[in-house]
């Protein structure tokens, strides 16, 4: 057991945890967020994706000790109903999800990608989202939403 102070969505959280414990469990159980989600614990699906210093990471394989004083942003820190991120607006407009359990992977990966790549082609978007899973098969919707967000982000 060791003590850590995590910066999550702009707030600091003191937690006691095993240094090996993946960040995911800190976010869900210690910080108490409804996101991200456990899909595989193996960095294979994306359901646990958060931003660490602006870059998407798989929190299921990132030890809490590796986070240091890095800034963690989860999907709930991306925007709010009052001040939504364009991807959140686009998800609602395109009615993307089925179960929605995959949502963190797509949105957090796309958010970083769209921030760094203005006016991407469809092919670039698909490549950026390669490897993320949606078992319900909402891929057509996801693409529409990411394209819509891309145009909103100019």
């Amino acid at each position: 057991m060791a003590s850590f102070t995590l910066d999550v969505n702009g707030k600091s959280h003191a937690i006691d945890a095993d240094p090996d414990m993946p960040l995911l469990y800190a976010l869900k159980n210690d910080v108490g967020l409804n996101n991200p989600q456990f899909g595989c614990g193996l960095a294979q699906c994306g359901a646990c994706t958060v931003h660490l210093n602006g870059q998407p990471i798989r929190s299921c394989v990132t030890p809490v000790s590796a986070v240091g004083d890095g800034k963690v942003v989860t999907m709930s820190g991306l925007g709010t109903p009052e001040k939504p991120h364009p991807l959140q607006t686009a998800y609602v407009a395109e009615q993307v999800t089925q179960c929605g359990y995959c949502i963190n992977g797509w949105v957090m990966t796309a958010a970083a990608f769209l921030r760094d790549n203005k006016k991407p082609t469809d092919e670039q978007i698909k490549q950026a989202l390669h490897g993320i899973k949606c078992r319900c098969g909402t891929h057509m919707n996801i693409l529409r939403a990411v394209k819509r967000a891309a145009s909103m982000m100019g």
Binding site: K28, Q88, V92, T97
Partner: peptide, 14 residues
């Protein structure tokens, strides 16, 4: 969709 996009609604895992 909105509660999922803003992570305001729990899944069974939550």
């Amino acid at each position: 969709i909105a509660p999922k996009a803003f992570c305001t609604a729990p899944f069974v895992t939550d």
